[in-house]
Amino acid sequence: MLFMARNGLTKRRSGSVARNRLKTVLLSERMDCSTDTMLMMKNDLIQAMDKYLPVDRAGIQIQFQQDPPMMLARIPILQEKDSRKDYVKTV
């Protein structure tokens, strides 16, 4: 556990870096849509939501599914009264 703490928690291991980089690049290739366009789409989505509801930007997860083709966005909404509990809206 000692060496886990020293290596594992301070920086992300290269295996998961590779996985995340691949997911992004394959996604844009499969959809024939550049990573910049995807980032813009993500930002537009957040802005649109943000007009009406406070959005937890750090907690946003966007996934693309192949079969059937589908985009899944998890956008946590900050609640003013109880900010610990948030609703999740799937678009």
């Binding site: 594992g8 291991r13 290269s14 295996g15 590779a18 996985r19 691949l22 997911k23």
Partner: peptide, 12 residues
């Protein structure tokens, strides 16, 4: 954690 696992590759 320095190589993608079989499950990672299959998922991707």
């Amino acid at each position: 954690g320095d190589m993608m696992s079989v499950d990672d590759v299959i998922e991707i």
